[in-house]
Design a protein around this nucleic acid. Sequence first.
DNA 1: CGTTTACTTTACAACGTTGTAAAACACCAC
DNA 2: GTGGTGTTTTACAACGTTGTAAAGTAAACG
Lengths: 339, 339
Amino acid sequence: MAATLHDVARLAEVSIKTVSNVINDYPHIRPTTRERVEAAIAQLGYQPNLSARSLRSGRTGVISLALPELSLSYFAELADSVIAAAESRGLTVLIEQTGGDRERELEMLRSPRRKLSDGLLFSPLGVGQDDAALIEQPYPVVLLGERIFGGPTDHVTMRNVEGARAATEYLLGLGRRRIALVGAHEGEVIGSAGLRLRGYVEALEAAGVPYDPSIIGYTDLWHRGDGATSMRSLLAAGAEFDAVFGLNDTLALGAMRVLQEAGIRVPDDVVVMGWDNLDETEYSLPTLTTLDPGRDEIAETAVRILVERIDDRGDHSGPVREILAPYRIVERESTALPA
Amino acid sequence: MAATLHDVARLAEVSIKTVSNVINDYPHIRPTTRERVEAAIAQLGYQPNLSARSLRSGRTGVISLALPELSLSYFAELADSVIAAAESRGLTVLIEQTGGDRERELEMLRSPRRKLSDGLLFSPLGVGQDDAALIEQPYPVVLLGERIFGGPTDHVTMRNVEGARAATEYLLGLGRRRIALVGAHEGEVIGSAGLRLRGYVEALEAAGVPYDPSIIGYTDLWHRGDGATSMRSLLAAGAEFDAVFGLNDTLALGAMRVLQEAGIRVPDDVVVMGWDNLDETEYSLPTLTTLDPGRDEIAETAVRILVERIDDRGDHSGPVREILAPYRIVERESTALPA
DNA sequence: CGTTTACTTTACAACGTTGTAAAACACCAC
DNA sequence: GTGGTGTTTTACAACGTTGTAAAGTAAACG
């Protein structure tokens, strides 16, 4: 069996509390004692039992990250960033996949498993604005994403409206006037799709370019195939456009593939732009212009805020914060017009 | 503060042990008592403290998964599968990123953080055959991947040699004789690259096709850019080939992109094949033929074996197992020759 | 109606750690 | 020496849970 404080204490001939003190860097310890204890620790290969420590201290040193699916590249890269941010603070990350299912997301919030962690970063897909009240929990939660605004918890997200507006303005700036949009969600107002659509519309209005429903492609999901399917229907319907704005990179890549199959050249005939700045946009053919929504910044900020809430435990008084990460447009080949 | 067994017991007017019994489905409880206890639990919103439970029971219900990086698609999809397999057994997964760095991988094995979990699924990249002895730990570890064989722990992996041989034979079967390989590692014998290269060589020999070092592309890593760079050097060196076997999908996709840039048609001029069956191979242009190495099977098996070891705790007697997942070739457009 | 048997509930200890408070020790000044 | 000050070490309790073993209760048998 693994060694405990008692074993170390016996070997070093001190009390267990002294061993505990050595481990926790209590300042007043005689150097000779410290040495003896450290030798005993080394000899027995002692490692503290974290369950006991966390029972005693009420802290586990673990945070949970609940997200739809790791096989969606955006969430994989987000998880990567979150783990890195947590690691730099000595925290470990427990990942829960919800599949984007509302019921499972809600269950995640209530499940006793959350007791395994000190706090939760929650990135919902199924839960929506109507459920805002439900995410209030008696333990620290930081909300990620665009499903809920003005909820009861801290919230870190990207600038969807502004970003989409900037992206659309960028395409307008290239002289394009018929910008097809891929990935809209029927009737959605809040949520990534709804907000980005709003930014798109705002940019068009500001530029005096009419909004044309016939070049808006609707999809249920933002998986790889959806962009392709959506683009196929646009082409089949005879839609005319000179630019495509994919509401995320995978949609844009799928759409781009269909354009190329149809013999339409990118960027010469139609320019294409995505959103997320996934690794793979740097290696597609052509490479994809995209909007970098500040993923690292979001992860870093979210972890920082969550840790602050954890440290404030009991004192839930601080105001609810809503933090927006900065975005930037990354220009690549898919919008590079001949000089 | 959160309710404890004591609070529930007081409210239900029973002993805490009775409450504990109700929670743990102890059979001999009077229905009326059970009802009273359950009402109290509901009223207080009681949830068991998992730290205390795990201190008492020695189990946490968590397993760790140590892997290089979630932003590498293969590992993201592997993690997805592992989490799903764990979830179906009521386990949660703690993810640690090692960055593929040997030191950090070794540290992971020794770190007291492992106490947070009941066992470890370890997918190394930096640690190699020479370190085999180091992965022996006084707690359950299942090794994933191809860096170490014949080590002291259970091991689940793909059939690298056979798979690569089958893939090469498949390309030979298309009538191709000059099969370029992308992603070899200089001097490696064990490890994904070394093993797959061996399968490639075996297939050539069996078919009586000479092995030509001038069409072997070496890369340090298997990241997205490496396949592109490697293919560029092959082309620059004037290498001649009619097929490309990428040792993984990202390499193959990178190489394919460079071929297309150079005006070489895929599959007409050169057929391309990858390895991993990533989601994205289904949406590239052209879609990529690939070898599916049985990722779900690997995850499912690894979790199952790990759980068995955890349940056997103390009884480390069972023989070390080496399990190979079945592979299959997925034919897509990148090798579809005109009829 | 006493005794066996089975069911139901309980008190207590233990898991390994850390906070509290106090004891033991060393040192110094007077 | 005596008292004061600061350092070092300790005993004990507590965190919330479950296993052990035993006590209490009800049903069943002879």
